[in-house]
Amino acid sequence: MNPIELYDILTIGGKDGDKEYTVANMIEHNHATYLYLIEVDADENLIESNQMIVRRVLKDGEEAVEVVTDEKEKQEVARLFFRLFKDQMDEMNKEETTGTEN
């Protein structure tokens, strides 16, 4: 399995079959990796109504993600993601104004 990077497309298998998600953001927190996933369709268009915060885990030796269920943990991580997104937004705006974006 390739290492996961930002904006990669993950094919995730669940009860309802395989779905594709993009990694909107990722953080390391309390010795765990959290991913902010947004579903994408076949053309890689975002399905913004389906977003989730997950933790990377190993399940039966396979790489998997686990939906964060603990409210406190989720809120803590959500706050971290919030700051991260905010910073990214600032950065993109700066890039746009200075015209350095590729």
């Binding site: 399995m1 390739n2 290492p3 996961i4 990077e5 904006y7 990669d8 497309i9 993950l10 094919t11 995730i12 298998g13 669940g14 395989d18 993009t22 890689e44 997950v54 885990v57 399940k59 396979e62 790489e63 998997a64 993600v65 686990e66 939906v67 269920t69």
Partner: peptide, 11 residues
């Protein structure tokens, strides 16, 4: 809810 990652690809 745990989901297995089947594939990772570059966008």
């Amino acid at each position: 809810e745990t989901f297995v990652i089947r594939k990772v690809k570059k966008s």
